[in-house]
Amino acid sequence: MIKHHLNPEILMSYAAGNSSSSVSLIVASHITVCSKCRKEVSFYEDIGGKVLEESLSVETKAETLDIILSKLDGLNSELITNTIIENSSFKNIPVVLQKMLPEGNSLTENWKKGIGGIKYFDIDMESVNKDLHARMLSIPPGKKLPNHGHEAQELTLVLEGGFSDENGNYNVGDVAIEDENNIHTPIADSEEGCVCLVVYEGNLKFKGVFGPILNLLKI
């Protein structure tokens, strides 16, 4: 049962099409497993539909329809193909996120090794904006992080295991939203550890839940 959700302003921004690629990744991953937030995104997309409907019509060029019609022949249908997960190590990862990760015999096989048994993988968002960061983290069971605060928004989605901090327990599907001035002491789940996706926009430093680890790993 998901207890920690994304907030309305993040979901609206995603639906309107103006969230960054890294935030879009975490929203798309979360709403795969969270029907509540998925429904909310649908509502904001309905608003977008109304905006479209109520836009002023602008006459198209006389030849536009003919150009489009001339391109239809030979155009295949784009059926959304049913996604089959062949790699069992990806079983807990939403498809949208799987596509961004390296294949391996285990989820973290081809991830980089950091200090304290931590593994990480930086996702290439192919964005021209280099201030966007998306990183997968695998943290060993019981790992405790020092107190820390942060300056900008960082989002953390739990994919396996979980962690706890002053705000409660975060389990699979939960999202931690770290805004300015929060102080946290997160501890990874004592049995399973924690696999999570962290996205951060701004300067070079991660300052959220797992910020200290992210910074030590040198992005």
């Binding site: 798309a28 998925r38 193909t81 997960i85 964005s127």
Partner: peptide, 23 residues
């Protein structure tokens, strides 16, 4: 977004087996 920003936009896969049922 595709044309103007030239960056990928991760999107929900409506056929993802992990998709939870609607409320």
């Amino acid at each position: 977004i595709d044309m103007l920003r030239k960056e990928i936009r991760p999107q929900l896969d409506p056929l993802d087996p992990m998709l939870t049922p609607n409320q």
